[in-house]
Design a protein around this nucleic acid. Structure first.
Length: 259
DNA sequence: ATGGTGGTCATACCA
């Protein structure tokens, strides 16, 4: 079972790049962030024609997450628990039925800039809610996969120019500590465990020729429970997608599970 | 200190 996560930065603007990638890499499951679409506006037929089931959790203009799956999905749940007043669409869960059933969460963690400020407070509060939800889900026997845009640079080796990010919400100590606290519940970070070398990125800003200069950061992550980590047979990043026509500023990250 | 790019919705906000 190949599971990928991809912040597409607008589904309507990314139809061609997204379908070209799906056709080339054929993930069984694609976790999408920043669809920037309401549920009714999501071009689901384009994906259904390719054999994917489509589950969305959208909102107008910003944010929004979706799950595409060639395998059956069960028990879809929308929204991150812990704050009934939070209207931002950043979390969707489902169980994918392979040879083994796997519980997935597709997440778009708040950016948090400028920091300090209310947006940074929202980011940290959201991460505390995520930690609580992960802890709750870990009581399940099922393998768990948490994939998405975390908007966290875990370590200095995950940025080409870490010194440029020290004041940024993506790299501030509070954000990195909250990320580590989630990992410390017992999750494995797939890319880091498979290849701990520096210089592996998933995002290059549209501005300043960041892609051409390889001025990237690694902020899209796949976190696995112990049961899921035991099933992992591979992990990687589809970096070439960033060189295509009208690319997202993020590229896909994937894992292969024996499930 | 400023503007640099891109998506969405509407001429501003978010990243």
């Amino acid at each position: 079972m190949k599971i990928a996560t991809f912040n597409i930065n607008g589904v309507k603007a990314r139809i061609e790049a997204l379908t070209a990638w799906l056709d080339a890499e054929a993930p069984d499951v694609a976790l999408l962030q920043e669809i920037k679409s309401v549920d009714e506006g999501f071009p689901r037929e384009i994906f259904e024609d390719r054999g994917y089931r489509v589950e969305t959790h959208g909102q107008k203009g910003f944010n929004g997450v979706a799950i595409l799956s060639r395998l059956p999905l069960e028990d879809v749940a929308r929204g991150l628990p812990g704050d009934d007043t939070d209207e931002q669409a950043r979390w969707i869960e489902a169980t994918v039925i392979g040879r083994t059933a796997v519980r997935l969460a597709c997440l778009y963690l708040p950016n948090g800039n400028p920091a300090p400020g209310p947006k940074f407070d929202y980011k940290l509060a959201w991460m505390a809610r995520m930690k609580a939800r992960v802890a709750q889900m870990l009581t399940s026997e099922m393998p768990l996969v948490f994939g998405g845009d975390y908007n966290v640079i875990p370590d200095p080796i995950d940025a080409a120019r870490p010194e440029a990010w020290v004041e940024d919400a993506l790299f501030r100590p509070e954000s990195r500590a909250a990320f580590r606290a989630i990992l410390n519940l017992g999750l494995t970070e797939a890319i880091r465990i498979r290849d701990p070398r520096p210089g592996i990125y998933t995002f290059w800003d549209y501005q300043g020729g960041a892609w051409q200069k390889n001025n990237g950061i690694r902020i899209d992550h796949m976190l696995l429970s112990a049961q899921a980590a035991d099933l992992m047979r591979g992990a990687g990043i589809d970096k070439a997608v960033r060189d295509g026509d009208k690319p997202s500023d993020h590229v896909p990250v994937w894992i292969e599970l024996d499930a």
